[in-house]
Write a protein that binds this DNA or RNA. Structure first.
Length: 496
RNA sequence: GAGCCGGUAGCUCAGGGGUAGAGCAACGGCCUUUUAAGCCGUGGGUCGUGGGUUCAAUUCCCACCCGGCUCACCA
C-alpha cells in the first residue's frame, strides 16, 4: 500500500465507513471553539481540569493500542490531545480509528498535564470535520529541529497550501506581510490620507518605464493594457482636490522573472499636495520605523547578519558624488555622451547601445553603488532623462528632485517632487512617446488627458512609490520575491 | 535569452550500464500518559519526457519540458 492513488482509495473507504457510523464529516457547518492552542498553554493554571473545545489539523499521531496522542495544529499553534477507549466508548473509538494525519478534527475535553509535563486535552468528544485524502508532507519536529519538511521549491510555490501547512516559517512570513500592509494602511489613514482605487484596465499604460500586458474588451472591441503604475491617475485626483491620496494595488509589468521581479506585484503609491521631496523622505522614515516596530517588534532589525537601524534619520547621498567615490567617475565625465560612454568602457560595461547620459549614470549607479547601500539610505538627484515625471532641480536642469530608498543593497522605493508644469511635462512626454515609437517598449506613452489635468493646475505635490513585495522581502530576510508572494508566476507544469 | 546545477516512492534523500535503496509517511499486528513514541511484519517506483548508443539504459549521448542559482533584460 503506497501508490498515492491507493492511499486515496483507502481514505475514501474510511470516509464511507465514517458515514456508516453516522459521522459524516461534511455535514458539519461550524465548530465553536472555546480556546486557541496558545491560550490552552498560556492559561493552563486557570484551565487545568476545565473543559475546552478546540479544532485543527492532525499533524502527528501516536497510537498506543487502546489509547492515543495526537497533535492538533491551528493557525501555526499546536496542542496535544489525548484519547483513550475507556473514556469515549466504542462508537467514538471506532470513529477515531478512521482518522488519519492530515484530517481536520474538533475535540471537547478537559485540560491536564501529562507525566512528561505537556499540557494536553483529554478528549470526551471528537468530530471529524474534514478528511485528508492524501499523505500530508508534515514532517516531524523536536526542539526546533525539523525533519522531512516540504523543501522542494517548485512544489512549495505551486501548492502553497501544502507549504503553509508544512513550513511554519512560510506561514508566519505571510502573516507578517499581511500585517505590514495593514500597518501601512493605518499609518497613512492616521495622517489623513484617503485610500482610493484607480483603473487596472487602461488604454495606455504609463507612469513607469515598463512594457505592459495587453488584453481586449469584447463588447467595446477595445484593446486595453494592464496598468504598470498608479501614478497618473492618482495625480489626476490631486488635481481634483483630494490633497492626500494613496492606493495599494497590483501592477503588472511584462518583463523577465527573477529573484527580485514578479510580473504582478503590489505597489503602494501616495501623493501629498503642498509637500516636497523632503516631506516624503520623513514620511518614508516614519513608515519604515512604524512597520519595524509594529510588525517586527523593534526599531532595529537583524536581517541577514546586518542590523538595520530605523531609529535615526537615514543617510542622504548625492548620486553623482557617490558614483565618483565608488566607481571613480567624476561628475564632469557625464557632461557629454561621448565622455560618459568612455567612462562606461573604462569600467568594463557595454556602452554600444547607450544613447543617453542619464541611462549611463543609472547603470553605473546600479552596478557600483547600489549594493553598498546597506543601512537605510536615500539617493538623491537623479538625471532628468530617466525621470520624466519629476520636477527639475532648481539649480541644475539636468537633474531632478527625485530620490530612491535603499537598504541591504536593494532599491525599494522611488519618490519625487512631482512635475506640475504642464508645458515641461508635455515636452518630456513627447520625448518619451518618440522613444516608444522608435521601439523602446518601456517608454511612457503620450497621455493627453493627464496633460489636460495638469493644465487645470496641480498644486506642488510630493509623490512616493514603494514596492511592497520588495519591502517585505528586505525586512523579513527572504531570499527571493517568490517567498513573499503567495502564488508567484510560474510556467505551467508541462504534461510531458 | 546564456551558463551552471537539479528532477529517483506521498515527503526528505542516497545510488548507479545488468529488472532500484534508506528514513519518515502508508498498510497489518502488539502496546491505555506518548511526543522524531516503541517493537514485529508488509507493500509501494514509467528513476521528468522523447529519441539514440548498447545484448542490456534509471545510469552514457542528444533534444525537449519543469524548477533553482548566476548573468543579461528591467531607459
Amino acid at each position: 500500500m503506497s501508490a498515492e492513488q491507493d492511499v486515496r482509495q483507502l481514505r475514501l473507504q474510511k470516509l464511507a465507513r465514517l458515514r456508516e457510523l453516522g459521522h459524516d464529516p461534511y455535514l458539519f457547518e461550524d465548530f465553536p471553539q472555546s480556546h486557541t492552542p496558545a491560550e490552552i498553554h498560556g492559561r493552563f493554571a486557570d484551565l487545568e481540569g476545565a473543559e475546552v473545545t478546540v479544532a485543527g489539523r492532525i499533524t502527528a499521531l501516536r497510537k498506543m493500542g487502546k489509547a492515543a496522542f495526537f497533535d492538533l495544529t491551528r493557525q501555526g499553534e499546536r496542542v496535544q490531545v489525548y484519547l483513550k477507549k475507556n473514556d469515549v466508548g466504542d462508537t467514538l473509538w471506532n470513529v477515531f480509528n478512521l482518522v488519519d494525519i492530515g484530517d481536520i478534527v474538533g475535540v471537547r475535553g478537559e485540560v491536564f498535564r501529562t507525566k512528561m509535563g505537556e499540557v494536553t486535552v483529554h478528549v470526551r468528544d471528537l468530530s471529524v470535520l474534514a478528511k485528508c485524502l492524501h499523505t500530508l508532507p508534515v514532517g516531524k519536529e523536536k526542539e526546533g529541529h525539523h525533519w522531512y519538511a516540504l523543501t522542494d521549491k517548485e512544489e512549495r510555490y505551486r501548492r502553497r497550501y501544502l507549504d503553509l501547512i508544512a513550513n511554519e516559517e512560510s506561514r508566519s512570513l505571510f502573516v507578517k506581510r499581511s500585517r505590514m500592509i495593514s500597518v501601512t494602511r493605518r499609518f497613512l489613514e492616521e495622517r489623513g490620507f484617503m485610500e482610493v482605487e484607480t483603473p487596472v484596465l487602461q488604454q495606455d499604460a504609463g507612469g513607469a518605464a515598463a512594457r505592459p500586458f495587453e488584453t481586449h474588451h469584447n463588447t467595446l472591441d477595445l484593446d486595453l493594457k494592464l496598468r504598470i503604475s498608479l501614478e497618473l491617475h492618482l495625480k489626476r485626483l490631486i488635481v481634483g482636490g483630494f490633497e492626500k491620496v494613496f492606493e495599494i494595488g497590483r501592477v503588472f509589468r511584462n518583463e523577465g522573472i527573477s529573484t527580485r521581479h514578479n510580473p504582478e506585484f503590489t505597489m503602494l503609491e501616495l501623493y501629498q499636495a503642498y509637500a516636497k521631496m523632503e516631506d516624503i523622505q520623513a514620511l518614508v522614515e516614519d513608515l519604515c520605523r512604524e512597520i519595524a516596530v509594529r510588525v517586527f517588534g523593534s526599531e532595529k532589525l537583524e536581517v541577514g547578519g546586518v542590523t538595520l537601524d530605523f531609529s535615526k534619520p537615514w543617510q542622504r547621498i548625492d548620486m553623482l558624488s557617490k558614483i565618483e567615490t565608488e566607481a571613480g567617475v567624476a561628475p564632469s565625465e557625464f557632461e557629454t555622451l561621448k565622455s560618459a560612454k568612455a567612462a562606461m568602457d573604462r569600467l568594463g560595461l557595454p556602452s554600444e547601445d547607450e544613447s543617453e547620459v542619464g541611462s549611463i549614470i543609472e547603470k553605473i549607479h546600479e552596478r557600483f553603488v547600489e549594493r553598498k547601500l546597506i543601512q537605510p539610505t536615500f539617493v538623491e538627484n537623479f538625471p532628468i532623462e530617466t525621470s520624466p515625471l519629476a520636477k527639475k532641480h532648481p539649480t541644475n536642469p539636468r537633474l531632478t528632485r527625485r530620490f530612491e530608498g535603499y537598504m541591504l543593497g536593494r532599491e525599494f522605493c522611488n519618490a519625487f517632487s512631482e512635475l506640475n508644469d504642464p508645458i515641461d511635462q508635455r515636452a518630456r512626454l513627447e520625448l518619451q512617446a518618440a522613444q516608444l515609437a522608435a521601439g523602446h517598449h518601456e517608454a511612457n506613452p503620450m497621455d493627453e488627458d493627464f496633460l489636460y489635468a495638469l493644465e487645470i493646475g496641480m498644486p506642488p505635490t510630493g509623490g512616493l512609490g514603494i514596492g511592497m513585495d520588495r519591502l517585505a522581502m528586505l525586512l523579513s530576510g527572504a531570499e527571493t520575491i517568490r517567498d513573499v508572494i503567495l502564488f508567484p508566476t510560474l510556467r505551467p507544469e508541462g504534461r510531458d
